[in-house]
Design a binder for these strands. Structure first.
Length: 366
DNA sequence: GACGCGTGGTC
DNA sequence: TGACCAAGCGT
């Protein structure tokens, strides 16, 4: 099976020549041919941010993180809440929790990242992809890097019609055949750049692809329908209530969510669980105790926020209230107006805040 | 292998 | 405009 050594060498050479001319300039990347070694800290940080996240979304976060925490020791010394606030809006918050755990583990054992795939994969938040990527890009190890781009490129190059995820083993094997002993990091980044800019999910630009002559899918005309994927499950609709309270001095009533689960460890508004039946709807007893507001006040309806998570749609009913000065809430804690920044909230909670603002009384001037 | 886990861009 | 998609990981 596979290609002979001369074919492999030709593909590798064509790809690297293309990469030398067309590599994207990215904040964490060292240009090919510069001779510089990338900083493992920056490679690791960028790879974690890029997990299931677009380059465009990552750039600003990467700049803010590296400006605030220039080294892994700086990050390791940060407080949990600071990192969660800086990560807010980027999603998949387990990444931020594992980022800190990883930074502290590396710093505690001397401050240098492991320089092998096996050493890296033992760290929190570093799986098969990220371990191979750091080993190849930062440490020039000949590891095979397989992400969604590489899967797509391999499926097309070899016209593999088995649907994902069943095809993963074969796609990994095909990618491994092409991994070069020299410049493995550039090769890995080149395949990913190829997938991101030419061998795109829709309307691939086959006419300018360095591998167009060898591509089996292009020859068969199947490139647009590869890789095949198992059908997705439909997203159910869930409902919940969020209470957004502001005290007379401007302080907001917020609540840190549990460390695990959805939006784990992030700051948000007190609320009900999110269930498939509207709260207080069909159940004869009305709202459960979980349906009680966090503090007694004149709560009024401020509309709803719609948001879609990975596996369900949410309609969040927003209740807003101006809370008295001596208010003693049953849940949550007040955050002073000067310390509150909506940008430190995950996107759903940011939307809820924006929805509640018009329903709250004007604050005293000054 | 399946599932839980965010968000914003795209068509 | 709703569904799909993006440099995956942990359980």
């Amino acid at each position: 099976m596979g290609r002979d050594a001369r074919e492999v060498a030709a593909l590798q050479a064509e790809l690297l020549a293309w990469y030398d001319r067309h590599a994207r300039a990215l904040p964490w990347r060292v240009p090919p041919g510069s001779g510089a070694r990338p900083d493992p800290y920056r490679i690791w940080l960028s790879e974690v941010m890029l997990q299931q996240t677009t380059v465009a979304a990552v750039k600003d976060y990467f700049h803010r993180f590296t400006a605030r925490w220039p080294t892994i020791a700086d990050l390791a010394a940060a407080e949990d809440g600071e990192v969660m606030a800086e990560w807010a809006g980027l999603g998949y918050y387990a990444r931020a929790r594992n980022l800190l755990r990883c930074a502290r583990a590396v710093t505690a054992s001397g401050g240098a990242f492991p320089d092998t795939r096996a050493g890296l994969i033992a760290l929190p938040g570093i799986g098969p992809y990220t371990a191979a990527a750091i080993a190849a890009i930062a440490f020039d190890r000949a590891e095979t890097v397989v992400d969604g781009n590489v899967e797509r490129v391999m499926a097309r190059l070899h016209d593999i019609r088995t649907p994902l995820p069943a095809a993963k083993a074969e796609l990994n094997a095909r990618a491994a055949e092409l991994t070069p002993a020299r410049r493995p990091g550039d090769h890995a980044q080149a395949v990913m750049d190829l997938g991101a800019t030419i061998c795109t999910p829709r309307n691939p630009a086959c006419g300018i692809c360095p591998w167009r002559g060898a591509c089996a899918a292009r020859a068969a005309g199947t490139q647009a329908e590869l890789p095949r994927k198992a059908p997705r499950k439909a997203k159910p609709l869930r409902h919940g209530i969020a209470w957004i309270g502001r005290r007379a001095d401007g302080a907001w009533l917020l609540e840190r969510r549990p460390e695990t689960g959805l939006l784990g460890g992030t700051l948000g508004w007190p609320g009900t669980d999110w269930t498939e039946a509207p709260p207080g709807g069909a159940s004869p007893g009305g709202e459960s105790s979980d349906g009680a507001p966090p503090a007694p006040a004149a709560w009024h309806a401020a509309g709803e926020v719609r948001h879609t998570f990975t596996h369900f749609h949410l309609v969040l009913d927003i209740r807003a209230a101006d809370l008295p000065e001596g208010c003693a809430p049953a849940r949550g804690e007040f955050v002073a107006a000067a310390a509150f920044d909506p940008a430190a909230l995950p996107t759903l909670m940011r939307k809820a805040h924006a929805r509640a603002l018009p329903a709250l009384g004007g604050r005293p001037a000054g």
